[in-house]
């Protein structure tokens, strides 16, 4: 699919779906990550596993500038280092306690996470604005067929449905599913945005139906 082997950016969420002070899970080809934004707006991505007991950090919570595990409250900074262990308030956690982190960017209203070391910046969105994200129980090929257009090597598919230009950013998910970020032309009004949301629901139904799947995810 890609010729470069150095690394690439995966679009994992809309910026608007990750407000300050929240953490969400995001699926990458290599596994799930915990994606979070601090109270002052700094974004970070780490492995979704607390090194203490293996609990998913995406089940945790963000207070101030740190991500805390829901299980025993071990807290981590953006760089992945453990900052606090509540049961041992006098202890400065050793530097060896840390979670793996990923390079992350917040541009064009999309949160991008690096796999490997990308050669450049995340792709430009050419006058499109993010609308919503949804998951299809269908692969990229089935979605391309339903949309009547192919995705480029960055997973970007531009199509026109019912007279409306839509840009879909496709990210492969486990078990043949695809995460779709829907973008509309910047400046589209509320009615056009609602129409776009419904168009993509219809496109998903077509792709899933062609894949002979029931839609369980």
């Amino acid at each position: 699919m890609r010729s470069d082997t150095t690394g690439f950016w995966t679009p994992v969420a809309l910026s608007a779906d990750l407000p300050a002070g929240t953490v969400i899970p995001a699926r990458m080809a290599a596994g799930t990550i915990a994606l979070w934004r601090s109270q002052t707006g700094h974004i970070a991505a780490s492995a979704d596993r607390c090194p203490h007991r293996g609990m998913s950090l995406s089940h945790g919570f963000v207070r101030g500038e740190v991500l805390s595990c829901i299980y025993h409250g071990w807290s981590y900074g953006r760089a992945g280092n453990c900052l606090r262990i509540p049961a041992h308030p006098g202890l400065t956690p050793p530097d060896a306690i840390r979670v793996v982190t990923h390079d992350v960017r917040d541009t064009g209203g999309i949160v991008w996470v690096a796999s490997g070391i990308p050669a450049g910046d995340p792709p430009d969105l050419d006058g499109f604005t993010p609308l919503r994200s949804l998951t299809a129980d269908a692969d990229r090929a089935a979605l391309a067929l339903a949309a009547g257009a192919q995705a480029d090597e960055d997973g970007r598919l531009v199509t026109n449905i019912a007279g409306q230009d839509l840009c879909l950013l496709l990210a492969d998910q486990p078990e043949g599913r695809t995460l779709i970020h829907v973008l509309v032309r910047s400046g589209s009004d509320a009615a056009a945005r609602i129409a776009a949301s419904r168009s993509v629901e219809r496109l998903r139904r077509m792709a899933e139906s062609a894949s002979h799947k029931g839609g369980v995810q």
Partner: peptide
């Protein structure tokens, strides 16, 4: 269980679409 879960996913998708449209408004 498969039918119950598939029905649950269909309901969640409907709720999600409704909430997306509410947010757009």
């Amino acid at each position: 269980i498969a039918a119950l879960q598939a029905g649950g996913v269909a309901s969640l998708r409907e709720l999600e679409a409704g909430l997306v449209e509410q947010r757009l408004a």
